[in-house]
Design a binder for these strands. Structure first.
Lengths: 202, 202
DNA sequence: TATTCGACCAAAAAGATTAAATGGTCGAAA
DNA sequence: TTTCGACCATTTAATCTTTTTGGTCGAATA
């Protein structure tokens, strides 16, 4: 019944097992060095069985990464919903996202190199993430305009802003991920978010 | 007399020849596929002669890339100096940088893939560029504070802002470089720059 | 002294060939 | 509906050989 095309986290416990086992292996050994048999053995099933739940090895990877991403965004949104003003919401959302990056960056160390060498792995995920983030940011702007906190912008401007902020955050994120000045940034994530949102003018 | 360690563009015409010839070859065939003999032949010299001017092949590449970078920044600064207010200056600087990326992105097509596969090539250049950009942005902020356009910020905040904006611009830049929505961004570079600088609040 | 170059070398890359590992399929069985 | 062993085509790893290439050096040139 549950074939590979299920778009999001399925309730199916075996599917979850696979994803869970795969995650550990991927994180420790990377994508290439983790074989389908490794994953199968880890959950006490045969290799063929995996193909009942996922179409390809890449699909497993993608599903796993997507799960992470959704969890991350869920946290950020939850954190954000404590606040009312757009500025507070934006700050809280951004800080949650970036802080997660700093705190869990050790965990993905092997992972990094892997993904660098196999960029095709994350192209789908990246696209989904971009689409999600842009749509999210646009909604936030509309909310801000309705509240009178953000000035009237054309639809095109809103679109551009969402795209620009998305890639800006990605730039900041990768610096946090790869760079060695996390300590410096750590305590100023709120300032960064506010700067992007309200600028630094008087 | 002129050995490899000269830091910037030298007047030495032969050195310029080498750089010029190398640039064409690198752009057409990439770093790996361009051999020292190719470069030597191109300028009608022997391979050994190249080593009189440059210590290694990487050095040639770096010198070439550095030349490009300096030219680019020179243009941006020139463009910026037409204006007085920080906001105008910042906008003009950013627009000049990003527009160059859009307009000359065809030219670097083969180049892109090359650099992706040999990240070590640009690590030095990237560091220099980051240092330069951050220092430049910090100066601009100080100028803005002196003029009363930018609110008082701590030294740490200025530092953080410079770093954050630098990587943000890099994020925007790589989207312009790799993505396929250049047309959309093209006419809104000024808006993007202003958003980063003054925010989008009322 | 400043510059060029041919001869030379060690190291890396490119090919060729073979052996092993791996992703994925399929039909039968539970 | 779910699991699995047997099986296959394709990749990848390993090994060895040949070629190319980055880089050095001493002599020659001017």
């Amino acid at each position: 019944m549950s074939n590979g095309q299920t778009n999001s986290t399925e309730l199916d416990p075996i599917r979850k097992d696979i994803l869970h086992g795969a995650r550990e292996l991927f994180i420790h050994f990377g994508f290439k060095k983790t074989t389908m048999e490794d994953i199968a053995k880890k959950i006490g099933k045969s290799k063929s069985s995996l193909y009942y739940y996922f179409k390809t090895k890449e699909d497993i990877f993608e599903a796993m990464a997507l799960e992470d991403m959704e969890q991350q965004h869920q946290n950020a949104v939850t954190s954000m919903n404590q606040y009312i003003t757009v500025q507070d919401r934006f700050r809280s959302f951004v800080v949650s996202l970036l802080r997660h990056l700093i705190e869990n960056n050790q965990q993905y160390s092997v992972f990094k190199a892997e993904v660098m060498e196999n960029p095709f792995l994350i192209v789908n995920i990246t696209e989904k993430r971009n689409a999600y983030m842009e749509s999210f940011l646009k909604d936030l702007v509309l909310y801000g305009i309705r509240r009178g906190e953000i000035r009237e912008l054309t639809h095109e401007e809103i679109d551009i802003w969402a795209k620009a902020i998305n890639v800006s955050l990605k730039g900041i994120g990768s610096r946090l991920f790869l760079g060695n000045d996390q300590e410096l940034f750590k305590d100023h994530l709120g300032f960064i978010a506010d700067s992007l949102f309200t600028g630094i003018t008087v």
